[in-house]
Amino acid sequence: MVAALNSGLRRVHAWVLYAAAPFPVLWIYYLGLTGQLGVDPAKVIEHQLGLWSLWLIIAGLAVTPLRRFAGVNLLKFRRAIGVITFFYLLAHLLTWLVLDVQFQNVWADIVKRWYITVGMLAFVLMVPLALTSNNWSLRKLGTDTWRKLHKLVYPIAILGALHFLLLVKGFQWEPILYALVILGLLATRIRELPWASRSTPARG
């Protein structure tokens, strides 16, 4: 099963992800422009792009544990997932800036509102990752430095989960579930935990 899946995945090029990436954004904007997102389309688009960003962060974090625990190899897609995550985050941010708050009191919002501070920080931390997502940067920085830099995705993921937790009204399960999934995926990286020493991927 896993072998068949992996050999199937080997035939898929990573550019397929890049090519497909704009469509969900275009689609949701199309729905918004044609009045199919209810009476408050700007909010729906903003929230949906935020959720997409979280899904993509989760997908990126899932690559390593999927290989380690299930033997499914998605490694060659990870860079594409990361780059696409950045652009979704950018689309989320621009939707907030242009359609929602409309450039009013933006700086005050960033420094005064915790959930915006946290979200903005996640975006800022993602900029160097997006800029170095190319082979030239990898060579220039050296593998070790590059790897260390790209571990920034861990705090970014935590900030993303926190951003969601901070913005809802009252007690709600949805952001808690996202936070648990992200923390769970990060926990698989902790070296002291028993599974971390296992170097060969589990089969089956």
Binding site: A42, V101, Q102, N105, Y115, L166
Partner: peptide, 18 residues
Amino acid sequence: RWSQATERRIGGGLFAKR
């Protein structure tokens, strides 16, 4: 967690001004 100085009037579509 947000400013109350302006509001989004529902029904103005995607580009409704605050």
